[in-house]
């Protein structure tokens, strides 16, 4: 079956977020920032202290990923999404700072899903465990913050046509709940 795909460019605007619906297959191009557990803790600690963020998040997408080192001659090492639920505890303050999109894998908490809707943001799921395929989409990569965190440092990456699926759109729909509910009754 042929899958229809939408293409979007970062940074995201309200208009580009509003055209995305849960279940849409999307190809993302532009700049993304990586951040996982340790970087999230540092960013939200900075906000609690009243300090700014090390990278401007307004309109941006955070990719929950800790890339592998780049082999010689390649822009990026293996890269792919980590479990997004671990970032739930840190997400709402970042949405309040203007974060517009997130890429990870697995469902979000009810509170985060509500905040995604309230802030007009979007959460994309990328397929986990396909890091060689996703690495091909990365054009450039450099460390943007927290270099001491090693693989958990914030990387600024430029991607072209990174394949993702809208898991939570700005209208409150959830791919995981709907997908599993739609498939369970077929096999009683």
């Amino acid at each position: 079956m042929k899958i229809d795909r939408k293409s979007i460019q970062t940074p995201l605007t309200d208009a580009s977020v509003r055209m995305l619906r849960t279940g849409n297959h999307v190809l993302i191009s532009g700049v993304l920032y990586t951040a996982r557990d340790a970087a999230h803790r540092r960013m939200t600690d900075s906000l609690l202290r009243g300090e700014g963020l090390p990278v401007p998040l307004r309109g941006q997408i955070l990719f929950y990923a800790g890339p592998a080192p780049a082999p010689p001659g390649r822009a990026s090492g293996a890269i792919g999404p980590t479990t997004a639920g671990r970032m739930d505890a840190f997400t709402i303050p970042l949405l309040a700072e203007g974060l517009k999109g997130m890429i990870g894998k697995g469902p979000r908490s009810e509170a985060v899903r509500g905040a995604i809707r309230d802030h007009g943001a979007v959460y994309f799921a990328a397929v986990g465990g396909i890091a060689a395929l996703l690495a091909r989409c990365v054009l450039t990569s450099r460390i943007a913050a927290y270099p001491d965190l090693g693989p958990e440092a914030v990387h600024r990456i430029e991607v072209v046509d990174l394949p993702v699926i809208v898991a939570n759109d700005c209208y409150g729909a959830d791919l995981y709940e709907e997908g599993v509910a739609a498939n369970r009754p077929a096999f009683p």
Binding site: I3, G80, I130, I165
Partner: peptide, 29 residues
Amino acid sequence: TSPTGQEVLSQILENARIAAEEQMPLCQD
């Protein structure tokens, strides 16, 4: 039977081909 499920499984198979060909890890983890 799910089209999205089929797409995911196709990407997994494609990734395995790329990883072997380019000597890249299958998963970043």
